[in-house]
C-alpha cells in the first residue's frame, strides 16, 4: 500500500480512537481526571506555540504568559453576558463596547488568538531585532507590561479583582478539537518550505539571509503565529478555570510552558505532545509533596510551592544530563514506527 495513503488512514484512525476515548472519559471519569485531561490538551497547545517560536525558529521568547493573558481576557469578556459584566465590575463602570459584546465561545477563542497575535506584532517589530538573551529579557518585560495594563485598565478588565464565573464551554471534546486544529496548522506549516525556512533561521541566520530569506519578516511571522496559538491556549485555560485574574499570568506560567517544551525537545512536535501529558500528570500527582506528612515520628507541615522546587530540580537535571530533552529534534512518525517494527521482526 502507498505509504502516504496508509499514513493518512492511520491518522484518521488515531483521531477516531481519540474521539471515542474522550467520549468515554467524559461519561465515565470523575471531574478531577477530566480536568487533568483538559489541562493536557491546553498545555499541549501552549507548548506547541512556544516550540514554534523557540524550538523551530530559534527565538528565545519569555512572553508567553502575556499572550495567554490577552487570550484569556478577550475570550472571557466575549462570552460573559452583559448583565454578568454589569454586576461584576464594582470598582468602575464597564466601558461601552465591552459592556455589550456577547459572542459564541468558538468566536471568543478565535478573537483571543487574533488579539494576542496583534500584540505579538506590536512587540515583534521593535524587539525581534534583538537576538539571544536580549530577546528573552525584552519579551519578559513586555509580558509584564501586558499584565500591568490589565491591572490598570479597570473599566475593561475589572482590574485586580479579575473575572469570575466565566460560563464553562470547554468540554473535553472542545479542547481536543482545538488541539487538533493547532496541530494540523503547525504540522502543515512546518512541513512546507516555509517550515524549512524557519529552521534555517534557527540553524544559521546569516546563511539564511544570504540564501534570500527575509529573516526579520519570517521571525515576525513565526512570533505572531506562536502568539496566536498562545492566545488560543490562554482563552481555553481561562474558560477551563472559569476564573481569571492578573496574578495568574506571571512569569511562573511562562516557566511551566517553557519547561514542557524543553523537556519534550526543542524542535519536536511529538516531543511537546508527550511531555505535555507527562508533565501535566506529574504536576498534579506531585501535589502530594505539598501535603503534611510525618517522617520518622515527626509531623512535617505542608509546604506550599514544594512542587515547583521539585520541578525546578527536574528541569535542572534535564539541562545538565539530557539537554536535547525527550525527543531532541526527532519526531515519532508512522514511517519511523513501521521501520522500527520491521527491524524487530528481522532481528
Amino acid at each position: 500500500m502507498n505509504s502516504v495513503i496508509r499514513n493518512r488512514l492511520l491518522n484518521v484512525l488515531l483521531i477516531a480512537v481519540l474521539g471515542l476515548f474522550l467520549y468515554w472519559a467524559e461519561h465515565n471519569l470523575d471531574g478531577y481526571k477530566i480536568q487533568i485531561l483538559n489541562l493536557i490538551a491546553v498545555n499541549a497547545i501552549l507548548a506547541l506555540s512556544l516550540n514554534l517560536i523557540y524550538g523551530f525558529t530559534g527565538m528565545f521568547s519569555l512572553g508567553h504568559a502575556g499572550f495567554m493573558a490577552i487570550g484569556a481576557y478577550v475570550s472571557a469578556l466575549c462570552v460573559l453576558s452583559p448583565d454578568q459584566k454589569e454586576m461584576m465590575w464594582i470598582l468602575e463602570e464597564v466601558v461601552w463596547p465591552v459592556s455589550v459584546i456577547h459572542t459564541p465561545f468558538w468566536f471568543s477563542v478565535l478573537a483571543g488568538g487574533i488579539l494576542a497575535a496583534l500584540f505579538g506584532l506590536i512587540i515583534a517589530l521593535p524587539v525581534l531585532r534583538l537576538g539571544g538573551d536580549y530577546l528573552g529579557i525584552a519579551t519578559l518585560g513586555f509580558a509584564e507590561i501586558i499584565r500591568v495594563l490589565i491591572v490598570n485598565a479597570t473599566p475593561i478588565t475589572n482590574g485586580s479583582l479579575g473575572i469570575k464565573g466565566i460560563p464553562m464551554h470547554s468540554t473535553l471534546l472542545v479542547n481536543y478539537a482545538w488541539l487538533l486544529v493547532t496541530l494540523y496548522c503547525l504540522i502543515r506549516l512546518l512541513n512546507s518550505n516555509v517550515g524549512n525556512v524557519f529552521k534555517a533561521i534557527r540553524d544559521d541566520e546569516i546563511a539564511a539571509r544570504v540564501m534570500g530569506v527575509n529573516v526579520f519578516g519570517y521571525k515576525v511571522l513565526s512570533f505572531c503565529i506562536g502568539a496566536f496559538f498562545a492566545g488560543i491556549g490562554g482563552a481555553l485555560m481561562g474558560n477551563l478555570l472559569t476564573t481569571i485574574d492578573p496574578k495568574m499570568f506571571t512569569f511562573l506560567l511562562t516557566f511551566n510552558v517553557l519547561m514542557i517544551v524543553v523537556a519534550g525537545g526543542l524542535g519536536s512536535i511529538t516531543g511537546s505532545l508527550l511531555s505535555s501529558a507527562i508533565i501535566t500528570v506529574l504536576l498534579e500527582s506531585l501535589r502530594a509533596v505539598e501535603d503534611p506528612f510525618s517522617l520518622a515520628g515527626f509531623d512535617v507541615p505542608g509546604i506550599p510551592g514544594m512542587r515547583m522546587v521539585v520541578f525546578s530540580l527536574v528541569l535542572l537535571c534535564i539541562i545538565l544530563y539530557r539537554r536535547e530533552g525527550l525527543m531532541g529534534m526527532r519526531e515519532i512518525t508512522w514511517n519511523a514506527l513501521f521501520r522500527f517494527i520491521d527491524r524487530r521482526k528481522h532481528a
Binding site: N196, K199, A200, R202, D203, D204, I206, A207, A208, V210, G267, M329
Partner: peptide, 8 residues
C-alpha cells in the same frame, strides 16, 4: 568556512 543548515 562552510555555513550549512546543519540540522536539516
Amino acid at each position: 568556512n562552510i555555513r550549512l543548515f546543519g540540522n536539516e
